[in-house]
Amino acid sequence: MANILVNAPKTAKRGAVIEIKALIMHQMETGFRPGPNGQILPRNIIEHFTATWDDAEIFSMEMSPAISANPFVSFFAVASESGTLHLRWTGDHGFVAEEKVAIAVE
């Protein structure tokens, strides 16, 4: 299971704009670097990040090899109604990781 840290409030006032921060462990090997034996290390990156609030996709990001190892992403969301924020990372070699956070809107 991937190591993931998500910072999102558990509760929010209706209509509040909340910040979501997410960090995931991933090497983000660029595919341009030589390894110890001089051979180029094969590319291994996260290509895509999406955030959905219940069923609605609210934010996504296409990444490139220029995103740092252990990628960090922060964005905002309107706390419109109570729901589950679902974060999902996908990438090379079938990489998939997910994290869910329940946010109660009052």
Partner: peptide, 19 residues
């Protein structure tokens, strides 16, 4: 990178780290 936003973001501000 290319990020896709929506009105549901409330605020057009994003952060990340690059090489």
């Amino acid at each position: 990178f290319s990020a896709t936003l929506s009105p549901r973001n409330g605020k057009a501000m994003i952060g990340t780290r690059i090489k």
